[in-house]
Write a protein that binds this DNA or RNA. Structure first.
Lengths: 227, 227
DNA sequence: GGGAGAAGTTAGTACGTACTAACTTATTGT
DNA sequence: ACAATAAGTTAGTACGTACTAACTTCTCCC
């Protein structure tokens, strides 16, 4: 008797990717700027303007002209769904199929758009419903709950600070291998022993080892201060 | 020094689907007719004409106007790649993730376009490199070799004939459940005990059970005669 | 062998998603 | 405060993929 709810036409892969990127940028606090989205997606800014209008028409984002986009509740829920898929897939590939943690992002990036909720839930079950992916990122629950704590990065730490590594960006395999080689991994504890001024290199100890890293790298490693 | 080979731009999902369908239809012997492709893909015939021209431009099919399309060697190799992906994925979902054999086609249909060769090979390894999927269909090797025997169907069997069930179409979950309920499964042996004329129902014994099926259903179950 | 009906193609349209070029609005540094 | 620059938008274009409508070609039966 009741009419079917407004047709939920499946989004295209691209539209989904925009939502995910808007979510990620918004986590920084401000609405997602056109240029930032464009940069993340490797796309011209003009194309982003157009797509944001379309997503706004679909009620998935709210755009304030010349100021940026924010997700609506439906948009956010789709973004979290994707994040869940991405992170479950990454976990599954590492745990069950022998992938390296540095090598799963790309694969997950495509699979997350093709996998059904059913598949993701089965994978999650097979893994014992993990709460974090191999890079330490929190996995949204099937219901869409996620830990959204704002974390500091190593670049935020003052000399003498001690912190536990929570997570790191998963995008760049090279970068992940760089970290792994220095045992800068989720769960490890680091202490900043020196910093050069003018955004200079940061020296830190991990276990008994001492490493010096640039601020760009340091800013991509998220931590929780322990002192 | 040597120039990179002609850019192998990734095909779209749709283009890939066309190739797969052309392959499947061609297995019947004749070139793939526009209407048949259109029907398989649930698409207007006019759209197929257009796409075939594009695929021909890409050197993946050879079209004889008003007569149908055949795969070229490169086209065939892509189609086999897809078939391999599809069947490995189906096998993996059934064996490792607890899917029912009736319920994997749809999921594989989308994943096959997103999975890399790397992933497929890892799945295949995890399964012990199977040579058949859960519906009895042969799985092409990574190198693209496949068993292309032309099989008969139950509809081809004369009264009295005995045959081993090799495989069945995986498209329709209902149909697969129908078969399963009658233990008409790959490996089972059937004997035709009666046939009504004018494409009437076929009566057969499977184990100790006796079933009567229509010709449409019978034509979708492939067998190897044993007498 | 000719004509009816089936099969196939072309033409014109729409939409999603990208692009570049040109223009407009916002920000920032003096 | 205002000009230079950065950021964002619009306009026009292209391409892939679908559609319907109208036309052409093929096939097969009498």
């Amino acid at each position: 008797m009741s009419r079917p709810a407004a047709r939920e036409k499946a989004l295209t892969r691209q539209a989904e990717d925009y939502l995910k990127v808007v979510y990620e940028i918004e986590q920084g606090g401000a609405p997602a700027a056109t240029t930032d989205i464009a940069e993340q997606l490797n796309i011209a800014a003009a194309s982003v303007s157009g797509m944001l209008q379309r997503l706004a028409r679909l009620g998935l984002v709210k755009v304030e002209r010349y100021r940026g986009a924010r997700l609506t509740a439906p948009g956010r829920s789709i973004a979290l769904q994707l994040l869940r898929r991405h992170r479950i897939i990454e976990s599954y590939l590492v745990t069950k199929l022998g992938y390296g943690w540095d090598d799963v992002h790309e694969e997950a990036e495509r699979l997350e758009h093709a996998a059904t909720t059913e598949l993701i839930d089965r994978m999650a079950d097979a893994l014992g419903n993990p709460t974090e992916d191999p890079h330490g990122a929190p996995i949204p629950t099937a219901a869409g709950r996620i830990d959204e704590r704002r974390l500091s990065t190593i670049a935020d730490l003052a000399v003498g600070a001690k912190a536990r590594i929570v997570r790191m960006s998963d995008r760049d395999p090279e970068f992940l291998r760089y970290l792994a080689k220095r045992t800068i991994l989720p769960g490890a504890t680091v202490r900043v022993t020196a910093r050069e001024p003018f955004d200079g290199p940061i020296t830190l100890t991990v276990g008994r080892a001492k490493h010096t890293v640039g601020t760009a790298a340091a800013a991509r490693v998220f931590v929780e201060r322990t002192i």
